[in-house]
Amino acid sequence: MGSRDLWVLAEHSGGAWQEVTLELLGEAKRLAPLVRGKVIALLLGKEVSAVAADLAEYGADTVYVVEHPVLETYITEAYTSILHGLITREKPEVLLLGATSLGRDLASRLAARLKSGLVAECVALGVNSQGLLEMTRAAYGGSVYATRICPEARPQIVTVCPGVIGKEKPDKRRRAEVIELKVDIDPDSFQTQIAGVIPADPKTIDISEADVLVACGRGLGSKEKLTLIQELADALQAAVGGSRVAIDNGWLPAERQIGLTGKTVSAKLIIACGISGASQFMAGIKDCQFVIPVNTDRAAPIFKIADVGILADMHKFLPSLISQLGRRT
């Protein structure tokens, strides 16, 4: 008989948490009393113990830290053997992973090795009257929601789609016990090697995945002026998007449209130039964190959601900004 704990595999890369890790911790905290277990976060990596305390603020009661130089990047063989070892020893009730490139790759391999049940890409989790996890996922292109349970095999493994649960506000007072675990791994025995990472090219990245965006709208005036937007985008390593007007006028290709009829973006920074902020556009940028509109119309609705609002003509302001940024490098 194992413990009744809920484990969450925390993903930390490039100095930042995967959003879904924080969402999962909040969800695990909500489910913990229903399953009658504790929330345990697993953090694998190279020199990661410094950030382990963050996990407590989002819901972890205990953090298991596994440090090894080979864990700097994700490698299927290392993660599978470490988790397999820990799970067979501690026998948790539930294992939660994000449906990320890592979670998708790992969860199924791990489930196969453990001969346990996996429900992948879930959109909702619940607990039934017997304390079993009810895992709901979309099927047939999203037209049906199927709920599955895993009655006997343990742990009940779930991957959850990023962005569907939403993360909670961190509780700065929460503390967790941090336990460092030692593992024996021999990188020479691995059949696969990671040769590096190719960073995304902001010019070709899908705008819905971009962290920094420069968007243009009617205020641009003509396609020739797009060089201005591109120059600013280059300086910030941003992707370029546009409002419906920019796409309808043929200034930008359709896959770069932001808004209800285009794409929903979730950039950390968006500079919206010459866009007044029709409700359709605003719906597309509501997940953006830092919004900087540049517009000549004082009453433009987009200024209402601005973090910094620039009341200026983009054609005069952008060249100044580009040269300012150029001077700062």
Binding site: Y145, C150, P151, E152
Partner: peptide, 19 residues
């Protein structure tokens, strides 16, 4: 053996995201 069982099919209705 299949470790997971289907218990329910339902029309899609996602749990509202926390706002």
């Amino acid at each position: 053996d299949c470790p997971t069982h289907l218990v329910k099919l339902a029309p899609p209705r996602p749990r509202p995201k926390k706002t």
